[in-house]
């Protein structure tokens, strides 16, 4: 199987897209009104100081030249200095990104763990009360945006019932584990600090579940309908007619073809997940990329804006490559057709 060729092709294509994205966001950030140099300094700063900062930021060069400088720096591992933190944007991102990734990871775990079984169940029990309940919930999940769930969870579970913490990644007084991956759950497990692990999980539950609900609903619906469709396919009836055990038919012959559309749509859901994560982070005071990104926008911190967008794009691209590889593993037809091209 030439999965490696397929992978190489996809990665090449992704680099291309990311360069396109960088040109776009680089230009957009600069044509928006407002002078970043003036905003970075105090309102009373003298004109010569502002001019010096502009010079330093190369804002007086033509746009393409500015971009080429940025590209050169990017390839040598620097995303430029943030006007707010006065550190390299890459350093800032490595500090804030893990919190966001951890949130996304848990949302994805909830998503996969719930959407697929729920969708399979509803599909197998199509048009029964089970199915109707699932469809009702799925409808709610698809129509209500994640930040509304986040606010509801915050109020209900955080303030009224008080069963889960609602602020930050760890309770006050709990020490962060030494930074290895930056994901507190993983780092605390590696260092064998179980109580920190539990505390981190309890902080993750509400925001990640609020984030996951939309994708869960969407993917459960898609799984349901493809299960219903496949259940009536001749190949499933043929498996039954050969006397194969029910478990084997469902977990092998029904599940694999039914999951192909689900996993494909997951690639898109991951994108929307990242968008919503910015709002949910703000609601739960989650020290991730969102606060950094929002401040960057407000202060017109050019390098930070470009950096945040590029990292988001990169995470999205990687997630989609993974999704594509899984789909091509599930569906030999896709793999072989790609190969033939």
């Amino acid at each position: 199987m030439r999965l490696t060729t397929y992978l190489a092709k996809r990665i090449g294509y992704t680099v291309f897209v990311l360069i396109g994205l960088s040109i776009l966001i680089f230009t957009l950030a600069r044509v928006l009104p407002g002078d970043p140099a003036r905003m970075a300094l105090s309102p009373r700063a003298p004109e010569w100081a502002i001019e010096r900062l502009r010079e330093q930021l190369r804002l007086n060069e033509p746009l393409p030249i500015q971009y080429l400088y940025w590209l050169r720096d990017a390839f040598s591992g620097s995303l430029g200095e943030s006007l707010v933190t006065r550190r390299d944007v890459l350093t800032d991102i490595t500090e804030f990104l893990p919190a966001t990734l951890e949130l996304l990871l848990f949302a994805l775990i909830f998503d996969v763990a719930l959407a697929i079984p729920i969708g399979m169940l509803a599909g197998r029990k199509a048009n029964t009360w089970v199915d109707n309940i699932v469809r009702g919930f799925a409808y709610i999940g698809v129509t209500i945006p994640a930040f509304v769930f986040a606010i509801i969870f915050l109020l209900v579970f955080g303030y009224v019932l008080q069963i889960a913490p609602t602020v930050g990644r760890l309770s006050p007084g709990v020490m962060s584990p030494p930074k290895i991956t930056g994901l507190i759950t993983i780092d605390s497990l590696i260092t064998g600090n179980f109580s920190t692990f539990v505390d981190a999980i309890s902080h993750l539950i509400l925001p990640s579940f609020a984030l996951a609900l939309g994708p869960i609903a969407q993917e459960a619906r898609i799984t349901r309908s493809s299960v219903v469709e496949n259940l009536n396919k001749d190949y499933i009836l043929a498996s039954i007619s050969h006397g194969l055990p029910e478990r084997r038919i469902i977990l092998k012959y029904l599940m694999r073809p039914s999951l192909i559309p689900t996993i494909s749509i997951m690639g898109l859901d991951i994108a929307s997940l990242m968008g919503w994560a910015f709002l949910v982070e703000s609601i739960f005071n989650w020290p991730g990329m969102s606060r950094y990104g929002i401040i960057a926008m407000l202060r017109k911190d050019l390098n930070a804006i470009v950096g945040v967008v590029m990292v988001t794009g990169l995470v999205f691209a990687i997630a989609n490559i993974i999704v594509d590889v899984i789909v091509s593993l599930l569906d030999p037809r896709i793999r072989m057709i790609e190969r033939a091209k």
Binding site: K233, D234, Y235, A238, S239, Y253, R256, D331, R333
Partner: peptide
């Protein structure tokens, strides 16, 4: 045992 009318539909497309 039954041989289905349409052999293409009777074989699961994603398994060898």
């Amino acid at each position: 045992s039954m041989i289905f009318q349409d052999p293409t539909a009777a074989l699961n497309p994603v398994f060898k």
